[in-house]
Simulated scan of single mutants.
Amino acid sequence: MKNIRLIAVVLVTVFGLVSFTNQGPSTKYKCMIQLTNYTGEGAYVAISLINPAGDYEQTLFVQGDDNEWYNTLESWWKFYGKKRNNIDAITGATISGGERSINVIEIEDSKIDAGYSIRFETAVEDQEYYTQDVEFPLTSETVKGKMEGTGFIRYVRMMPN
């Protein structure tokens, strides 16, 4: 009986330590997305952390809270759809042409100036899809700057929160 209790305590301790491992210090950034003046439905936007190899590593924010339409963000969906991580805490309503949104995203400090980039992918129902509407290297300078879009996004402005 003593051995069983000891094993239970050890297992709970080990699982507790694994569950709460810290990924390292991170910084929150305000991220303003200004859309172009298009007509039509609200835009779905996925903000992703892209690793130095050019692969998706993490979803930072999703503009659009109806998961029925996530597959329209085709490239991101190939990454997210396989894992189906819970992203409820990092989603918001779509925004329409000419509107802007300000969201807070959190980025691990170790990813800055380390070859990573941020990708803004956009899709609008019955319109076009832009895999890299905005994409830029994640550097100390770009997290305080303004980047122009190539599709539904007019520009993105970042600043430490």
Rank of each mutant, 00 (worst) to 15 (best):
T142F: 00
L6W: 10
I118T: 05
G151W: 02
T142R: 00
I153G: 06
A114W: 15
M158R: 00
I87T: 08
L6K: 12
E141R: 02
F152P: 04
T36R: 03
E106A: 04
I107F: 00
A89L: 09
N103K: 15
Y70T: 07
S110T: 09
G145L: 03
I105A: 03
A8C: 08
F20K: 15
F136R: 01
E57Q: 14
F15D: 06
T13H: 03
A114T: 10
I112T: 06
G81Y: 10
T59I: 04
E41N: 11
Y38P: 01
V134D: 02
V62C: 05
Q127Y: 01
F61D: 05
V10P: 07
N37C: 07
V12F: 06
R154C: 11
E121G: 02
F120Y: 10
N51Q: 04
D65W: 15
F152Y: 08
D126N: 14
P25L: 14
P160C: 06
I112M: 06
E99Y: 13
Q34M: 05
K28A: 13
S101I: 14
E135L: 02
M32V: 09
T13L: 15
K78V: 13
V12C: 11
I33C: 01
G54T: 09
N71M: 07
E141L: 07
F79D: 08
K82G: 11
D126A: 11
N51P: 02
E135T: 04
L73E: 07
I7H: 12
F136K: 00
M1E: 07
D133S: 02
Y130W: 11
T150F: 00
Y70A: 08
Y38T: 04
V45Q: 06
T139M: 09
D88E: 10
E57T: 07
Y38D: 02
T21P: 01
V18A: 05
F20T: 08
F152T: 07
G54P: 08
Q58W: 15
E125N: 14
D66A: 00
T72W: 07
T72P: 10
T94N: 01
R5W: 05
N161M: 10
N22P: 01
I107R: 03
G97M: 02
R119S: 13
S75M: 12
G24V: 02
T91W: 06
V134L: 03
V62N: 06
D65N: 13
G151Y: 01
V45R: 05
S48W: 01
I50R: 10
W76M: 10
N3E: 11
T59C: 06
I87F: 06
K144R: 11
Q132S: 14
E108A: 05
N51R: 04
L6E: 10
S19K: 13
T150E: 01
I4K: 14
D65S: 09
G97Y: 00
N161A: 13
G145I: 11
V124W: 04
E74K: 07
E148M: 12
I4W: 06
Q132C: 10
I4P: 09
G98A: 12
K144P: 14
G24S: 03
I4D: 12
F15Q: 11
F136G: 00
Y70L: 05
E99I: 04
P25T: 12
S75P: 08
Q127P: 03
I7D: 09
V104F: 09
D109A: 08
G151L: 11
V62E: 09
K144I: 14
L11G: 15
D88K: 05
E125V: 12
K111C: 05
N85T: 08
G149P: 05
D126E: 12
K2V: 15
S19V: 06
